[in-house]
Design a protein around this nucleic acid. Structure first.
Length: 472
RNA sequence: GCCAGAAUGGCAGAGUGGUUAUGCAUCCGGCUGCAGACCGGAGUAUGUGAGUUCGAUUCUCACUUCUGGCUCCA
């Protein structure tokens, strides 16, 4: 039984979707005004892991992730760049998708854009005004927090104790209460000049930040959805506001399970431009490879801070390569598998189902990927041990199948097992080396091995012949 | 200031009221023509101080430190 930690209750709860066998997930996606950094991707990856786990457990999952393509920053920075808002956000939207591919993050079912849903937001504002939960002022529409008694239930913030003047710019907007937030913002002259505005009953407007998520999730899923994900920093105010908007409008529970991913920090410190420690995904993918980065993220539980550093990444890489090596060796062994019986056959056949159970239980425990990786390593060790002495086809196939399943659930080793074309030149060198080895001409054999290595391939001699591997 | 979470070996990370997984790194052994890969073994840790307990890393309290949130933020 899957258990997930629900931010709303602050405990792990048994997961039961609204509709048996189906899960609806809404994930807060990127604001497309810049290259996303690796911390952003950690959160996107967390959602991917949740989806993959749910599917592994047999659920049919629908994931909706929004693209915020209109807000203060996109408007500001497109203006600075002298580009239309649309062209500007399109560029970074593509950049975002490129990053997802690098990490094997599977695509969501839908990626609604804020600019395509402004009508719905206007509708929501109208409804909230009707219910007395929102008001128009100076051409903007604000949510009246005092009219929603449950405000604060997600973040557990006691608003009486917060010094309002210190943290909220009172002068910026003409609101009844400084904590009230904008559903729709009156357009500025500059925005109107640039054509960034929408007609509404209250004049020209553009959406506020929080409104889109309520509208787009309810558009797809109705008033209540199963899981809503995002980074911990979104708990307040973003998700708190989403609850106020949605539940205020529908009177029904908005989200059943709130799941929040912890932040990624760098060498013990928060990423920030002033510290110069903000990394974009392409930067570190170029250094370590996308799957290694994915593995690195998987090796820390999503509710724990991940402290990125070079030694940490190197460590992850070694761990990753070790697991991959076993898969390669299984692939290699399968080529010479036979039907004979080997002494280790029974033991590993007994252990495989046990490992799968453990793997599943790890993921059922609030998507505990580090624990799942530990089980994966145990499978790796069992497999390696078997490969020392046995090559029974059935055993190898079963072991390989389980290995593959683990890898697929974790989104790893997608390219493994694909036929790689080894250049003929290299193959010829390998042949020559085998000749030399037969003659026990070790000196020539070693020279050839060096040559092969210079061409980018490593040779591993085995009982079944040389196993050729591309240098990572 | 208020709130929340965390503190495990050189590094990363689990679990557990009584022997502290696992991997990387290190050392030793095996396998190997050598190597690689792999297998086996070794050492090294539960922030500090109390309390509960026969016994605590695990429960309680305090302290310290760290990180985050309270304003845009994944």
């Amino acid at each position: 039984m899957l258990q997930v930690y629900n931010t709303l209750s602050r405990v792990k709860e048994p997961f039961k979707p609204l509709k048996a066998g189906e899960v609806s997930i809404y994930a807060c996606g990127p604001t497309v005004y810049n290259f996303p950094h690796i911390g952003n991707y950690r959160t996107f990856l967390m959602t991917d892991n949740i989806v993959r786990t749910l599917e592994y457990l047999g659920y049919k999952v629908t994931l909706v992730m929004n693209i915020t393509d209109i807000d203060d920053k996109t408007i500001r920075d497109s203006g600075i760049a002298g580009v239309s808002l649309k062209d500007f956000t399109e560029k970074y939207t593509q950049e975002f998708f490129r990053g997802l591919d690098m990490l094997n993050i599977r695509k969501a079912s839908f990626y609604p854009r804020a600019t395509d849903n402004v009508e719905g937001m206007i509708e929501l504002a109208r409804k909230l005004i009707e219910k007395g939960l929102a008001y128009e002022k100076g051409g903007s529409v604000y949510y009246r927090i005092s009219a929603f008694p449950e405000y604060g239930k997600l973040s557990k913030i006691n608003f009486d104790e917060i010094k309002i003047g210190a943290s909220v710019d009172v002068d910026e907007y003409d609101k009844d209460n400084p904590r009230d937030f904008a559903l729709l913002k009156a357009s500025t002259p500059e925005e109107i000049e640039r054509g960034i505005f929408y007609e509404s009953p209250w004049g020209k407007i553009r959406p506020g930040w929080h409104t889109e998520c309520s509208v787009m999730s309810m558009k797809e899923f109705g008033p209540t959805l199963d899981i809503h994900t995002g980074g911990v920093d979104l708990i307040f105010p973003h998700h708190e506001n989403e609850i106020a908007q949605s539940e205020g409008a529908t009177g029904k529970p908005f989200v059943r399970y709130w799941m929040h991913g912890e932040h990624l920090i760098v060498e013990g410190e928060k990423m920030s431009k002033s510290k110069g420690n903000v990394f974009t995904l392409p930067e570190i993918v170029e250094k370590y490879g996308g799957e290694v980065v994915r593995f690195m993220f998987l090796s820390v539980h999503y509710r724990k801070k991940l402290d990125y550093s070079e030694p940490f990444a190197e460590n992850a890489k070694n761990n990753y390569l070790r697991l991959k090596e076993t898969l390669d060796n299984l692939d290699f062994a399968l080529r010479s598998a036979d039907e004979s019986e080997y002494p280790g056959d029974r033991e590993i056949l007994e252990v495989l189902p046990e490992l799968e159970t453990q793997f599943k239980e790890a993921l059922e425990d609030d998507i505990n990927t580090p624990k799942a990786i530990t089980v994966f390593r145990e499978l790796s060790r069992s497999a390696n041990r078997y490969l020392e002495t046995g090559k029974n086809r059935e055993v190898l196939e079963k072991t390989h199948a389980l290995y593959r399943r683990f890898a697929d659930v974790l989104g790893l080793f997608t390219a493994a097992g694909e036929e790689e074309k080894v250049p003929d030149v290299v193959l010829k060198l390998v042949e020559e080396r085998e000749e030399a080895r037969k003659k026990k001409d070790w000196a020539s054999a070693d020279v050839l091995r060096d040559k092969i290595k210079a061409s980018g391939y490593i040779i591993q001699d085995t009982k079944e012949g040389p196993n050729l591997k591309k240098v990572e």
